[in-house]
């Protein structure tokens, strides 16, 4: 080491290094659509958290006399549903279950699917073939059908709906994870790390994960809207949340008979689902372009 010591280095103030995430944030900030979508999601989350303070009325209190009041009725700013419950309060409280049903399965599937996909992609060979062909079997089912079939088999209920949605998303995320990992594995820096004698686990931790989790994360974000819609669908079919819980999909179901009487009222839960899913999709799009390193 004597030779190297000659070139001893004076420690000095390092210029401000621009980290990867700093750059992502800088590019994201310049994308008004993504920022707007992010603000909408933030508002929805705040709405869910502070629902008891925001809702003007008890979302469970029924009133046989004031059923299906139109939007704008005094005391019912967004009307009342088929049991006379305040629509605005139910929509606000509904954000809790709907967002939970949208986000939780995707978070679980992100963890499980990434692990499976990175393993298959990094190890390669017959391990990859075995894992990915099994995944393909699940992937071949239309996701609605798979979710309905699993929920039906497990029995109706909130927890079972979560499990079946997670199972629906694991193969999709695993496929993306496998594709990205296979790509990263063939890069020269992974070869260089192998040539330096590093073990597989270290290489995955230091060199692979940092480069694959970003794209997998972006893809998963775009699945949140799908998850919400599927969860709503399960509730609509009576396989998810049960009445009288406020949940947008379930509300859409119970109000469907009122669609000829009060079409605007019946559409309101659908509007909420639409706004939430489009916000998540636009945010995912913004993230995707902001995470593209090639400026």
């Amino acid at each position: 080491m004597a030779v190297l010591a000659q070139h001893s280095v004076v420690e000095g103030p390092a210029p401000k290094a621009t980290g990867y995430w700093t750059g992502v944030w800088r590019r994201l900030r310049r994308d008004p659509v993504a920022i707007a979508a992010g603000l909408v999601i933030l508002a929805l989350i705040l709405m869910a958290i502070f629902a008891p303070y925001l809702a003007p009325a008890d979302p469970y209190r029924t009133s046989t006399l004031r059923r299906l009041r139109p939007v704008g009725t005094a005391g019912y700013p967004l009307g009342s549903d088929e049991l006379g419950r305040d629509m605005l309060s139910r929509l606000i409280f509904g954000a809790r279950l709907s967002l939970f049903m949208g986000i939780t399965p995707v978070v679980l599937a992100f963890g499980i699917g990434s692990a499976i996909g990175v393993l298959a992609g990094y190890v390669g060979g017959w391990v990859n073939t075995a894992i990915m062909r099994t995944i393909d079997v699940f992937y071949a089912f239309p996701s609605v059908l798979l979710a309905v079939a699993l929920s039906g088999a497990l029995g109706a209920g909130f927890g079972n709906a979560l499990v079946s949605l997670t199972v629906v998303f694991v193969p999709q995320i695993a496929r993306v994870a496998e594709a990205v990992t296979t790509q990263v594995r063939s890069r020269d820096y992974v070869e260089a790390a192998r040539a330096s004698g590093a073990g597989g686990f270290t290489i995955v931790r230091v060199h692979v994960l940092g480069n694959v989790l970003g794209p997998i994360f972006v893809y998963s974000t775009s699945l949140i809207s799908v998850s919400m819609i599927l969860a709503s669908g399960l509730s609509f079919l009576g396989l998810g949340t049960r009445p009288p819980e406020p949940e947008w999909g379930l509300m859409l179901n119970t109000l469907r008979t009122a669609i000829y009487v009060q079409p605007w009222l019946a559409a309101l839960p659908g509007v909420m689902i639409f706004i939430t899913s489009i916000a998540f999709n636009l945010l995912a799009d913004g993230l995707r372009s902001a995470m593209d390193v090639k400026q």
Binding site: Y20, R187, Y189, E191, A192, V206, H207, G210, N211, V293
Partner: peptide, 9 residues
């Protein structure tokens, strides 16, 4: 380019 990990300094 491809021989350096883009996420590491």
């Amino acid at each position: 380019y491809s021989s350096l990990n883009p996420r590491l300094t």
